[in-house]
């Protein structure tokens, strides 16, 4: 469903992605690991169309479409979802209003009528249960005053609401306590099926005990330099990144 070929991208004139290639098929879970500043969040930003980044080279196709041609909201409505590493607060905009707008935009994009009030409320309730989200949170403004962990949980709640075909989870595990990590991971697993795919960006093997990846990639200096199965994550946990750096630089 997703094919990234030789992708190069800049921010403020500085090249961050330096020829990244990756293919994701339906039903797969890919983990991306790598040292701080390697370009993991940048990859997520570029795939979702963050205008701060400039693609200078390469191609990305998603469900056969040229993804780089689409506006950020079109990419979202095509089924790409990003769970942000740092979700922003939007004061004054209630979660309910925000979610209803998002759902209806998606429906409009697919030529469907707006969701009815009862269907919407039912959907909200169902998905809140899935990630065991507190009612109080959804009656507040988007992320406003949410704790770090609450924000992350809210990201997965939104993912559940929007039912994307490709989810990118950027360090969703950081900030979650041990119980929350399990709950959120279970939520992600329940949403998983043969038609959708997940890219999990993480620093810790622990999350991968719950969300078991089909592939583990190491992103280093703007490129994917090593790919393995879930055992690669264990190896990284054990040995760190120095040996990878040496391999690359050798």
């Amino acid at each position: 469903m997703l094919q990234i070929k030789n992708l190069h991208a800049n921010i403020n004139g500085k090249e961050i992605l330096k020829g990244l290639t990756l293919t994701v098929k339906p039903g797969e879970i890919h983990a991306i690991m790598g040292p701080n500043g390697a370009g993991k969040s940048t990859l997520a930003s570029v795939l979702t169309g963050n205008p701060a980044f400039e693609v200078t080279h390469g191609s990305v196709s998603f469900h056969g479409k040229d993804l780089l041609e689409l506006a950020p909201e079109q990419r979202a409505n095509e089924g790409i979802f990003l769970s942000f590493q740092y979700p922003v607060e939007i004061p004054g905009v209630s979660m309910v209003n925000f979610m209803r707008t998002a759902i209806n935009e998606q429906r409009k994009y697919r030529n469907q009528d707006p969701i009815s009030a009862t269907d919407f409320l039912r959907l909200m309730r169902e998905k809140k249960e899935l990630v065991e989200m507190d009612n109080k949170l959804t009656s507040r403004s988007v992320n406003e005053g949410f704790s770090g962990g609450e924000k992350k949980r809210n990201e997965i709640f939104q993912m559940a609401m929007l039912n994307p075909s490709l989810s990118i989870l950027d360090e969703t595990d950081s900030g979650l306590d041990i119980d929350a990590l399990r709950i959120v991971a279970n939520g992600v697993n329940k949403l998983k099926n043969a038609d959708n795919a997940t890219i999990v960006i993480t620093h810790y093997q622990r999350l991968l005990d719950y969300i078991v990846p089909d592939f583990v990639h190491v992103l280093y200096d703007g490129r994917i330099v090593k790919t393995g199965d879930k055992n690669l994550a264990l190896e990284l946990e054990d040995k760190g990144y120095d040996w990878i750096k040496q391999e690359v630089e050798a």
Partner: peptide
């Protein structure tokens, strides 16, 4: 810009995002 992009990423156009934020 981050607020706008966050809305965009949820499928909401920039215009609607501004409307949403301003009305909020």
């Amino acid at each position: 810009e981050d607020q706008i992009f966050y809305c965009n990423q949820r499928g909401i156009s920039t215009e609607d995002a501004v409307g949403l934020i301003v009305n909020g």
